[in-house]
Nucleic acid binder design. Structure first.
Lengths: 224, 224
DNA sequence: GCAAAAGTGTTCCGCATACACCCATGC
DNA sequence: GCATGGGTGTATGCGGAACACTTTTGC
């Protein structure tokens, strides 16, 4: 069975920083779509696993090393890539954006975070891939806890609240939200406070790792 | 970029009949895994879409034409196929098993339905693919209605109840279940009854197509 | 008349929702 | 002392969960 089919991986990596959800993009160095923005990604090598391929491409093109990656969807319409029949397996990742200094190499001229409401035009069918990933991100929130991968190790409660408000794109009642999260027992309150600017200083919290991953596995029904 | 990577699709097709959930398997005609049972599937042609490839393979190997198919997951571990680097995009399907006469051809010696609790040993990593699909099937039930693709056009309410009980692998309180389904307004009660064997004859119901697909789109939170 | 399956209502409790005021700090 | 953001409690209503008896048929 002779096939002229090629295989790539692409990554939609979301970050959250100061009230903005951003996505990691690279500016392409070569044709096709030279100089256009695209999702980081590239060809799978013959002897590497798909996960390894994504991690390698991400690392090469952006300098980001990621701890949370999951497979999103496989895009294989004939015609989606002008180079021929190219199937792309898309991955979905979460990361703290300020944990890395972006550093482009190989196929990328540069790498940058873009707030998801201010995306440039994307190469290939990457807009479709991005939309699929965003939908997944918004969906995940309803059946498992979210935040560990996106927030700092220690954070004030309002950070988590803002993250959820941003993801759901609506306001959240702070008291009910706190009640819900507290009932999940997924946060540890630390004996520390921060005050940034005016206002009462906030207690710091951290995710209880064990409980967090237990909830992810079990699934929760989260209605805010 | 020279790659020696090949692409296949595989389908996990579930059927429901008389209280049993079954899956469609084919007996392989050629090496590797000659004479072993496997999921229907095969190589993707260069100019066909992935969906078309699954539908074609299913039709060739089993005679089943399917109306509900969704992409499940892509399996790409090096070493999963003795023929070399073969990536498989797995699909997930639902069908009424008695709507088709099974008919094997091309790569399959024969095709058969197997109750999911009595699976034979499967070729390649198909057991893993099957497990993934089963988990998806059980998960779907909690966020969207299910049954339209699996039940006859007209069916007694108890069929739907049995389907859910089987999928969830536990008993269901009939009254609460009826209340829940009724509140969704997804069933139309017909002015017909059937009696099979002893017992009071049952009213027949059918899914309200429009409402059913609307609920699928919106998502429901279904807790029985 | 009895075995088998269909059909039907009520009570209780937990959780989601709505809602407003006081507290600690910086300037 | 005032502006800013952090922190907290109560009342209401809806929906999920538990639970048992009557009805209609075949034999």
């Amino acid at each position: 069975m002779e096939q002229k089919i090629q295989l790539t991986v692409d990554a939609v990596v979301f970050g959250y920083d100061a009230g903005d959800i951003s996505v990691l993009l690279v500016k392409r160095k070569y044709e096709p779509f030279k100089d256009a923005w695209a999702l980081p990604g590239g060809f799978v090598l013959e002897h590497e696993s798909l996960e390894r391929a994504v991690e390698r491409e991400l690392s090469e093109e952006t300098g980001v090393r990621i701890n949370y990656l999951e497979q999103l969807y496989t895009f294989g319409e004939p015609g989606r890539d002008p180079r021929g029949r190219v199937i792309s397996i898309a991955y979905f990742g979460l990361v703290k954006p300020n944990a890395f200094k972006l550093q482009a190499a190989t196929d990328a001229q540069k790498a940058e975070w873009f707030p998801i409401k201010e995306l440039p035009k994307l190469a290939f069918d990457h807009k479709i891939i991005f939309d699929t990933a965003l939908k997944r991100l918004q969906g995940k929130i309803t059946y498992e806890p979210l935040g560990f991968e996106l927030l700092d190790k220690k954070f004030p409660f309002s950070d988590l609240e803002k993250l959820y408000a941003t993801l759901l794109d609506r306001e959240i009642d702070r008291r009910n939200f706190k009640k819900k999260i507290t009932s999940l027992k997924v946060l540890d309150e630390l004996n520390e406070k921060v005050s940034i600017g005016p206002g009462r200083p906030a207690s710091l919290f951290s995710f209880n790792r064990k409980r967090y991953f237990q909830l992810k596995k079990e699934g929760i029904i989260f209605e805010i």
